[in-house]
C-alpha cells in the first residue's frame, strides 16, 4: 500500500474524530447557553402592568384583541 493511501486512512480517522468530538463540544456550548438564557428569562422580574417587552406600544400596534394568542404582559 502506498504512503498516500496510508495518509488517506489517517486523514479520514482524524476527520471522523474531529466531527464527532466537535459536534459534542458545540452541542454542549449551545445547550448551556440556551438553558442559561431560559433561566434568566424566567427569573427576570415581570414587566410593570401595562408595559410590553421590546419596543414601546404605538398607535400602529393596538392592544391584542380578546382571544388573541399574542403574548400579554
Amino acid at each position: 500500500m502506498s504512503e498516500a493511501a496510508h495518509w488517506a486512512y489517517v486523514a479520514a480517522a482524524y476527520a471522523a474524530g474531529l466531527i464527532i468530538v466537535g459536534a459534542l463540544v458545540i452541542h454542549a456550548v449551545l445547550d448551556a447557553r440556551a438553558q442559561r438564557r431560559t433561566l434568566a428569562r424566567l427569573e427576570a422580574p415581570p414587566p410593570p402592568r401595562g408595559a410590553r417587552a421590546g419596543t414601546p406600544r404605538t398607535p400602529a400596534s393596538p392592544t391584542p384583541a380578546a382571544g388573541s394568542t399574542e403574548a400579554r404582559p
Partner: peptide, 21 residues
C-alpha cells in the same frame, strides 16, 4: 452518557479505519 457514547463511536470508527488497511 453522551460523552461516553461519543468516545465509543470515535473508537469504533477509527478502529474500523485502521482495520481496513
Amino acid at each position: 452518557a453522551p460523552i461516553g457514547a461519543a468516545f465509543t463511536l470515535v473508537c469504533l470508527v477509527t478502529g474500523s479505519l485502521w482495520g481496513k488497511p
